[in-house]
Amino acid sequence: MHVTDETVEYGEDEGHADLASPPETPPVRQGNREERREATLRALAAGQDAWCAYCGRSLPPLPSRGGRPTPYCAADPDRYGRWGAKVISCAMLDEQREIWLTVYGPDQPMTRIDTQVLDERLGALLGTLDPVRAEIAALQQQASTETAAALTAKAEAEQARQQAQEGAAAAAAERDRALAEAEGAREQAEADRAARDGARQAAEQAEREREQALHDRRAAREERDRAEADRQRALDQAATAQDRIAELQTTLAGERATTLERIDQLRREEEQERGRLRVSLDEEYQQRLRTRTAELDEQLRTAQVAADQRINELTSRLTEATQNYANALSPLHERIAALDRELAERSTAEAALTGRLEELHAAVTEALAEPDEDDDETLRRRVAAALETPRQQPSG
Score class of each variant (00 low, 15 high):
residue 173 A to Q: 10
residue 146 E to W: 00
residue 153 A to Q: 09
residue 209 E to R: 06
residue 138 A to L: 13
residue 126 L to F: 03
residue 156 E to S: 06
residue 214 L to K: 00
residue 243 D to S: 05
residue 207 E to D: 15
residue 218 R to F: 01
residue 133 R to A: 10
residue 215 H to M: 02
residue 204 E to V: 11
residue 180 A to C: 11
residue 226 R to F: 09
residue 209 E to N: 04
residue 205 Q to K: 12
residue 118 L to H: 12
residue 181 E to C: 05
residue 226 R to W: 07
residue 203 A to R: 12
residue 163 Q to I: 00
residue 140 Q to T: 09
residue 174 E to A: 15
residue 241 A to I: 13
residue 178 A to N: 06
residue 116 Q to P: 03
residue 181 E to D: 07
residue 154 K to S: 04
residue 237 Q to N: 15
residue 193 R to F: 05
residue 124 A to F: 09
residue 234 A to C: 13
residue 162 Q to W: 06
residue 188 Q to C: 04
residue 232 Q to D: 07
residue 125 L to W: 05
residue 115 T to V: 13
residue 224 R to W: 06
residue 165 Q to F: 10
residue 112 R to W: 01
residue 182 A to Y: 02
residue 140 Q to C: 12
residue 132 V to L: 06
residue 134 A to H: 03
residue 123 G to K: 12
residue 214 L to E: 02
residue 243 D to T: 15
residue 152 T to P: 07
residue 132 V to F: 05
residue 124 A to V: 08
residue 108 Q to L: 10
residue 166 E to G: 03
residue 216 D to F: 05
residue 148 A to H: 02
residue 186 R to T: 04
residue 195 A to M: 14
residue 229 A to N: 02
residue 142 Q to K: 14
residue 112 R to V: 00
residue 244 R to Y: 10
residue 147 T to K: 09
residue 166 E to V: 01
residue 143 A to K: 10
